[in-house]
Design a protein around this nucleic acid. Structure first.
Length: 1014
RNA sequence: GCCGAGGUGAUGAAACUGGUAAACAUGCUUGUCUUAGAAACAAGAUUUUGAGAGUUCGAAUCUCUCCUUCGGCACCA
């Protein structure tokens, strides 16, 4: 009977679905184990071979844990809110809910074909109102909480109101609006004015982690800084806990490091500088010190190097700094304003792109050095970031390279403060050395100096030791449609929380998914986007601050809707939540997905606790993985769950890359002509050339070789570029690609079908050129094929290099694909996809199947038992280490050996089925059933390794001379070192290799090696 | 610039606490079978661990220096 993967896989997939094999129980005597995959965004492109890599690994682990007797929770769902569906909706008018649903359906079909053991009854979709009801609910908890630095945790906002009532005498006199404004500065979800990353092309604000190199991560559109009123999350309150928590979790070092960088803790000191009184133009240093006491304007700076205080020669303020306009003198006003204008109009990308460009302007104002009384000029410069520290720096050009650059550029003085600094050449940023030119710090080592100066600064009340974090509060509002509505309404301009009873606030219908004419977010297009608050029967009326006792945290500020008051509709918030809102708590919802009363029941949360094993891509290092930790800590603070960290162990699977077909492009006519003349190709046609021109890859090699010898061409060679649009669809390959470096001929007609605009381009190969689809034959007898070279690239629909798993499942079966993906290499390593090797795994499964054709009940031989138990041990160890590639090899070795022994014994083959079941579950179920088992192999007990079957009583010692192995000699393992040495020395071969010399030393390592030193 | 992970045959890779480098697979060559191809089966070949130094009887593995690839952060005071 042939191995028929199609029939087997269909049968068992149906069986699993029908019998709900993988349902996880919320109460069980078995120990729990929670295996979680990062849920996918259901894109229109469907799954490619890279997506399942992690799912396969986690599935193997889940199935293994089940066989070990654990109650395994292994769910799957969809992160179904997001930009691509909305962009698509804008283009086509199709509702994102519709396309998202289609995509989910397709994903599900593809996932089902791979035989995953997900508990589909627990599926969540973040865009489902029954799910986002609770995302909104969590938002309300965040809105109604503040971070109490004394208890170091989040508390209900009521505790803050009480505190204000007792501690602030003016509290009662404040208006409703004023109270709201004060509280807003404390709420964890708050509406605040801040500089945000505004992306005009997407029409929305982006969080810091959604911006890379000054452009949006999705789409690559420019981003600018803009001061906006915006919903934000006070993640900064959790900076220290997010940092220290990293030490308690088993996550990859690279992710932890990325988070540490992102949090960016630095220890230093704040110092306040007084500003010289504008009328006092000159005077002795002492007079200055006295005089400034009368002016209460100060500039506060943050520094990690307070020891260099005596090296200050100027202060620099960020252009956005609020004091700039206040302190700028009349004479300098014009230039400073011009500069501020310039800085404002420079986009983030421009600013980051030429960081070397030094710009700035003198304000005309002076600060006074708090120790020396010297006047320090105050400058504005955009090398100082408004968002970090205080937005102002004390410039020490002798000790900081950026300050040094600025000082050099504007001719400001530079004072060395550390012995041995060569301030002519560069700043000395070293934290080692002896202080000079620094008054009472002179002679101290840097570290001592830092301690001493902080103490002195604190003593004189100039500032204090301080810890700063680079982490910023996260922008939470998005001016987009396809996201969770923020459950906030506005009454008299004051934001109020929607009553929990009214959740979910369902996404309204809109006519277009675009901003309104006056730039309001799409939700502003909805009719009646308003909210009518309930009368509050228990409200004590105006001014009441009694916390609600119902347990539900409704908005304690929503007084005023007294009993019997007329219902009135108020406008709702029009921005929506970002993509990371729904994913910041989904792991909790899986525990109790159908609960209509709570986001998760206490019982379910207490049973499943945290994720034991979380698997996903490393691209979420500073986004999702930071936010999910933040929300977890918050929910714990408020007593909803009992865990501090969401996932004990996190593994990042490597990316499966694609191979793109690629050809070089020239952008200049001159270079093209020169290059072609180098390889003796007629360049007559160049007259008709208008870029871009693609060069066949075989031509480029030749051109390159010759060009390197010609200095003129060599320098211009850089005009020959790899650019984004120089890749070609893989369908255009005329033959299969074996290796990335191979040249492959392309069928340009296929290219034109995929990308019609390429017809306008110029293609040059050795024997001909194609210009706007017109062929020019060089008639030189050379190849007319256009070749591309492979390049490792991201696998994506837009690159046309996607390998679809469906075709492979169709041809080879899911079990083969699963094992092949694992066989490719270590889980955490990125690697380009290459389908070629799959035949090896396919052949292996056929061979495996054959072993089971005529099984017998005979007793197994010692040799067979040894193979089995070695396999049990290796497979078990490998799964524990997540070394699935070596597991697959082990199975291959095992099957090869059993085949050689013609083994057909049930005693060996039945346990082997259990071992392979996590990897190739379909074939395992089939063979398991054939042995007469009625239950799924899923719950068969994992075979136990028995050492007694694998002990060897002899070992073949490699005998080496000076470390070089020369021959082998088999000896009893029970022999002592001395006996082994005696035996080996007595050998004829040993004497032969000794060539009559006396050995200096003989090293015997039992069961390892014999080394003879001559 | 800082941080993290790497660098082993033609290719994907393996090698546990230093102890036979290249298991397993792909590719390649040859043969059997077949009308032919695919498949299946059988046989076979290649290399010395990025470079250099050190420790050691012995180093892919430990230490140092350098080169290099990938990823993250980056005007963060």
């Amino acid at each position: 009977m042939e191995y028929n993967h199609k029939e087997i896989e269909e049968r068992w997939q149906k069986f699993w679905a029908d019998t709900k094999t993988f349902t996880a129980k919320n109460n069980s005597d078995s120990p729990k184990y929670y295996v979680l995959d990062m849920f996918p965004y259901p894109s229109g492109a469907g799954l490619h071979v890279g997506h399942p890599l992690g799912y396969i690994a986690s599935d193997i682990y889940s199935r293994y844990k089940r066989a070990q007797g654990f109650n395994v929770l292994h769910p799957m769902g969809y992160d179904s809110f997001g930009l691509p569906a909305e962009q698509y909706a804008i283009q086509t008018g199709q509702h994102p809910a519709v396309t998202t649903e289609q995509n989910i359906k397709r994903y599900r079909e593809q996932l089902d074909k791979l035989g995953f053991s997900f508990d589909w009854d627990r599926q969540v979709k973040t865009s489902d109102p029954s799910y986002y009801k609770w995302t909104q609910w969590i938002f309300l908890q965040l809105f109604n909480s503040w971070y109490n630095p004394e208890t170091d945790k989040a508390e209900p906002i009521d505790s803050l109101i009480k505190k204000f009532e007792s501690e602030r005498s003016d509290w009662k006199t404040l208006s409703e609006k004023e109270k709201s404004d004060v509280l807003m500065d404390y709420r964890i979800a708050y509406l605040g004015e801040a500089f945000v990353n505004w992306c005009p092309a997407l029409g929305t604000v982006l969080a810091n982690d959604e911006v890379k190199d000054g452009v949006s991560e999705r789409g690559g559109y420019p981003v600018e800084r803009k001061l906006m009123k915006q919903w934000s999350m006070r993640i900064t309150a959790y900076a220290e806990r997010l940092l220290t928590g990293l030490d308690s979790i088993d996550w990859s070092e690279s992710i932890k490091e990325a988070q540490r960088n992102w949090i960016g803790k630095s220890e230093g000191c704040s110092i306040r500088f007084k500003i010289r009184h504008p009328e006092l133009v000159s005077g002795s240093d002492n007079e200055m010190l006295k005089q400034v006491q009368h002016d209460d304007t100060t500039i506060e700076v943050f520094t990690t190097r307070p020891d260099t205080l005596f090296g200050i020669t100027f202060l620099t303020l960020a252009p956005e700094h609020e004091l700039v306009s206040k302190i700028t003198t009349e004479e300098n006003k014009q230039q400073v304003e011009a500069y501020l204008n310039y800085a404002k109009n420079r986009s983030e990308r421009d600013r980051q792109a030429d960081v070397k460009k030094i710009t700035g302007q003198f304000t005309g104002a002076y600060a006074i050095h708090p120790f020396t009384g010297k006047q320090i000029p105050i400058w504005v410069g955009d090398y100082v970031l408004a968002g970090y520290g205080t937005g102002a720096v004390m410039a020490v050009p002798g000790g900081d390279q950026r300050d040094w650059n600025f000082a050099k550029h504007f001719g400001l003085p530079i004072i060395p403060v550390i012995e041995g600094s060569d301030i002519e050449k560069e700043a000395n940023e070293s934290k080692e050395g002896k202080m000079i030119n620094s008054d009472f710090l002179n002679g101290l080592q840097v570290k001592e100096a830092i301690k001493k100066i902080i103490a002195e600064i604190e003593k004189r009340g100039l500032g204090k030791g301080k810890i700063n974090y680079r982490l910023r509060d996260a922008a939470f509002g998005r001016q987009r449609y396809w996201g969770e509505p923020i459950p906030i309404y506005y009454k008299d301009g004051i934001p109020f929380a929607v009553d929990e009873k009214d959740l979910p606030i369902v996404l309204p219908e809109v006519d277009k998914f675009l901003p309104t004419e006056d730039g309001e977010p799409p939700l502003a297009r909805a009719k009646d986007w308003t909210y009518t608050p309930h009368p509050q029967p228990f409200s004590k009326g105006e001014g009441s601050r009694e916390p609600q006792t119902s347990g539900a945290v409704s908005d304690s500020l929503s007084f005023g809707e007294g009993r019997g008051e007329a219902k009135e509709a108020y406008p709702l918030e029009t921005t929506t939540m970002p993509g990371w809102a729904g994913s910041s708590w989904y792991y909790l919802r899986y525990m109790d997905p159908h609960n209509e009363k709570e986001f998760v029941s206490k019982a379910a949360a207490d049973y499943w606790k945290d994720v034991d094993f979380y698997l996903g891509g490393s691209e979420h290092a500073t986004g999702h993985l930071l936010y999910v930790r933040f929300w977890t800590k918050f929910l714990k603070d408020r007593g909803f769950i009992s865990i501090e960290e969401p996932a004990k162990k996190l593994v990042n699977q490597g990316m499966i890359q694609g191979v793109s077909e690629f050809a070089w492009v020239t952008v200049s006519k001159e270079v093209l002509g020169k290059l072609l003349s180098v390889v003796n190709i007629s360049s007559d046609f160049i007259e008709q050339y208008e870029g871009p021109a693609y060069l066949s890859a075989d031509l480029v090699g030749e051109v390159y070789k010759i060009a390197m010898k010609d200095p003129e061409v060599n320098t211009k060679y850089s005009f020959l570029k790899q650019v984004n649009n120089s890749t070609f669809p893989i369908q255009a390959r005329k033959q299969d690609r074996n290796d990335v470096n191979d040249l492959v001929a392309l069928d340009l007609n296929v290219v034109f079908n995929v990308w019609p605009d390429r017809k306008e381009a110029v293609f040059i190969s050795q024997g001909c050129a194609l210009i706007k689809n017109r062929l020019i034959d060089f008639e030189n007898g050379k190849s007319k094929d256009f070749f591309s070279r492979g390049t490792i690239d991201k696998m994506s629909k837009s690159k046309h290099n996607v390998v679809n798993p469906d075709e492979l499942v169709e041809k080879f079966g899911a079990d083969t694909l699963r094992m092949y993906e694992m066989f490719l290499g270590p889980l955490e390593q990125s690697k380009p996809w290459n389908t070629n090797g799959i035949t090896g795994v396919s052949g292996f499964l056929k061979k495996f199947w054959k072993l089971y054709l005529n099984t017998s009940e005979e007793k197994a031989s010692a040799a067979e038992l040894k193979i089995l138990h070695n396999t049990i041990k290796k497979i078990t160890d490998d799964i524990e280490k997540l070394s699935f590639n070596t597991s697959v090899s082990t199975f291959m070795i095992c099957v090869n050996e059993l085949t050689d022994l013609k083994c057909n014994k049930r005693e060996i083959l039945e346990p082997l089925v259990i071992l392979i079941a996590p990897f190739a579950p379909h074939i395992a179920e089939e063979l398991w059933k054939n042995f007469g088992n009625n239950e799924s192999v899923t719950f068969a007990k994992w075979p136990e390794y028995k050492e007694e079957y694998t002990v060897e009583n002899s070992f073949s010692y490699p005998v080496s001379f000076n470390g070089k192995t020369r021959f082998f000699h088999e000896l009893d393992v029970a022999l002592s070192k001395e006996d082994v040495e005696k035996e080996v020395m007595a050998l004829e071969q040993t004497q032969k290799y000794l060539e009559g010399k006396q050995p200096k030393k003989v090293i015997v390592v039992p069961k390892k090696i014999v080394n003879i030193v001559v």
